[in-house]
Design a protein around this nucleic acid. Structure first.
Length: 569
RNA sequence: GUCCUUGUGGCUCAGCUGGAUAGAGCGGCCGCCUCCUAAGCGGCAGGUCGCAGGUUCAAAUCCUGCCAAGGACGCCA
């Protein structure tokens, strides 16, 4: 309908251009769903936008536009209002048609081929495998999964990917932490920088047949003893590696695998599925980091300084050059990441989306710089930042640190508030909004979570249909739907398609969540003010058709958000 | 110091590609189940849209400056 109106307006403007009223044809004609029913169904501000250029007052220009507008059946009437808005009132049978469309298409309603099969790579969460996923990670997981669902609904071909950082120093710290828990040094002889969580003990318990050695000989003092905690842990790692030999790798693999399998199952039960788990180590194994460095070197983008190799990212928009190989000859995380991104580009995607925590925003320029330097199109890369979720308990902020072992896991959260509520809660805030997650509130008053409000509407409709013994769709005389509640609902249903498209294209799942709540709200009002199971069979059928359509949209929308639509509550 | 994000009723947030009287939930107060699920509905109270300028027919929305909160500025990942 929106498109149709744009088309008509375009024709009208074209004829005004021909008459010399306007000097130029504009392409971008904005059509909005009217907020207020007295303002019709759709409105455009085009007359106000063009008034000055045409030399008329907005209202006068609006008159001219309306006068030259071709008349079509779908438009019942047109009004000029306010300072020059043109309001369109859509013929009711045209609006009502949406009900049949929804019922016919069912769970496919809302899907389109807008994306035209374009291939999208969506990377999200990618938390280091040094501990279980916690509440902070949940937001990225819920957001990413929902964006994927939305894009797929619009006809994009989306691959979700998790980048596993299994090659850095943190993994060595993890391995050494596990070994120390296995050895069980008496007292509190555990490094400040080690991973202190209880899950480390659980992994350590799985080790058998490895010698229990003292790795504290000849190490730098820890911080609490007046030393350097970073040097301390590095020395411990060194001892651990040399003393354990092959057993080190065994413990390393055990640690990574147990943590990773936990992450995988947590995400899976959170309703988040990945097409690919990409290991940083695989880049090294395949020699991609090395070949990438060679490529940059040949292009003259690498120089040596203080014993390290630097990538001249400042040539490509970064504000400082970056080290890719340290003076101890090990390559940096950034080096792997360049190789990773060039691998992503080589895989032939039309769009590459990275969802990162907001703390990584400063990292974006150097990645984009690398992409440019390697000759890829940096416009294909979209970096979406998700702000942190701060967890509060009894009004006090709960620190979230994997290293210190102080965190609430995603699994615990789901157990306490339920998966539906958690998924919905995360996605209800726009991603760049700093989010406060009050655990006590979420737990003690979980019934007040808006997700139940929406699910309740769905369950209520199911219950009505069950009472009416309606199990399959049928046709009805929809023109009987004309009270105010029904008009509002029909209008709301007509918005769904646009809501989906906007939510997907702008990567804003929260707009869908708000839409669903509005729709549910309109339904609840209707429910409390109109009877569905009336004696008049024709009217009953019409009303039931309407609520069947509502139920379908609630279900479709909730599904996209990764939330269930229960029949009974 | 530089850069990013945020600042909207008591609280948590929508609205921000400029538009028609600034919305919702929670909390507070008052009503509604002999009737399809009261996890619901209706009503009331409550807002200088951080502050100050500017652009425009029109600014919560765009621009500038300032204030406040969070974050980023590593040979960490």
């Amino acid at each position: 309908m929106k498109k149709k109106l744009q088309q008509l307006l375009k024709q009208s403007l074209a004829s005004l251009v021909a008459d010399g009223v306007l000097d130029i044809l504009v392409d971008d004609i904005r059509i909005d769903h009217s907020k207020d029913k007295t303002q019709g169904d759709f409105a455009t501000n085009i007359a106000m936008v063009l008034a000055k250029r045409a030399g008329y007052t907005p209202r006068m220009l609006a008159e001219k536009i309306v006068a030259t507008l071709p008349s079509v059946n779908e438009i019942e009437r047109i009004e000029i209002a306010g300072s020059g808005f043109i309001n369109f009132f859509i013929a009711s049978d045209s609006s009502l048609a949406v009900i049949d469309k929804i019922i016919t298409k069912g769970s496919r309603y809302g899907c389109s081929n807008f994306g035209n099969g374009q291939k999208v790579l969506l990377e999200f969460v990618s938390a280091n495998p040094t501990g279980p996923l916690h509440v902070g990670h949940g937001r990225g997981a819920a957001y990413g999964a929902t964006v994927a669902n939305l894009l797929r609904a619009l006809g994009f071909k989306v691959d979700c990917e998790y980048y596993v950082n299994d090659a850095g120093r943190q993994m060595d710290i993890l391995t050494t932490s596990v070994y120390l828990r296995y050895v069980k040094i008496k007292g509190d002889k555990f490094p400040n920088s080690g991973y202190k969580g209880d899950y480390i003990f659980a992994i350590a318990k799985k080790i058998s047949g490895v010698a229990k050695l003292d790795i504290f000989t000849n190490v730098c003092k820890d911080e609490k003893d007046g030393g350097d905690k970073e040097k301390h842990i590095d020395d411990l790692i060194g001892n651990c590696k040399t003393l354990l030999g092959d057993d080190y790798k065994t413990i390393f693999d055990l640690a990574v695998n147990s943590i990773l399998s936990g992450i995988k199952s947590d995400l899976s039960s959170f309703g988040v599925e990945y097409q690919k788990w990409f290991f940083e180590q695989s880049l090294v194994d395949r020699g991609l980091v090395k070949s990438m460095l060679e490529k940059l070197q040949m292009a003259g983008n690498i120089y040596q300084k203080n014993g390290a190799l630097w990538f001249k990212t400042t040539n490509f928009g970064d504000n400082s050059d970056r080290v890719v190989v340290r003076d101890n000859k090990t390559s940096t995380y950034f080096a792997s990441d360049i190789a990773y991104h060039s691998d992503k580009f080589r895989r032939g995607y039309d769009k590459i989306i990275n969802i990162w925590g907001a703390d990584h925003h400063g990292y974006a320029p150097r990645v984009k710089a690398a992409i440019k330097a390697l000759g890829f199109d940096e416009n294909k890369l979209e970096i979406l930042l998700v702000q942190f979720a701060h967890l509060f308990r009894s009004g006090v902020k709960v620190p979230m640190s994997t290293r210190d072992g102080s965190f609430v896991t995603l699994q615990e959260l789901c157990r306490e508030v339920g998966i539906d509520a958690a998924r919905f809660f995360y996605v209800l805030r726009k991603s760049e909004q700093h989010m406060d997650f009050d655990l006590d509130l979420a737990k003690s008053k979980s019934n007040e979570n808006p997700v139940f409000y929406i699910q309740y509407a769905h369950a209520r409709i199911f219950s009505v249909l069950e009472k009416a013994q309606i199990h399959k769709p049928y046709t009805a005389d929809l023109t009987l739907l004309k009270n105010q509640y029904e008009c509002d609902l029909v209008k709301q249903l007509n918005r769904y398609q646009d809501v989906l498209q906007n939510a997907a294209c702008n990567y804003e799942p929260h707009t869908l969540a708000y839409y669903l709540r509005d729709l549910a709200g309109d339904f609840h009002s209707y429910y409390n003010n109109s009877e569905f199971l009336v004696k008049d069979k024709i009217l009953r059928q019409a009303r039931l058709s309407l609520i069947i359509a509502i139920k379908q949209i609630l279900s479709n929308g909730l599904n996209l958000l990764g939330v269930g639509a229960p029949d009974k509550m």
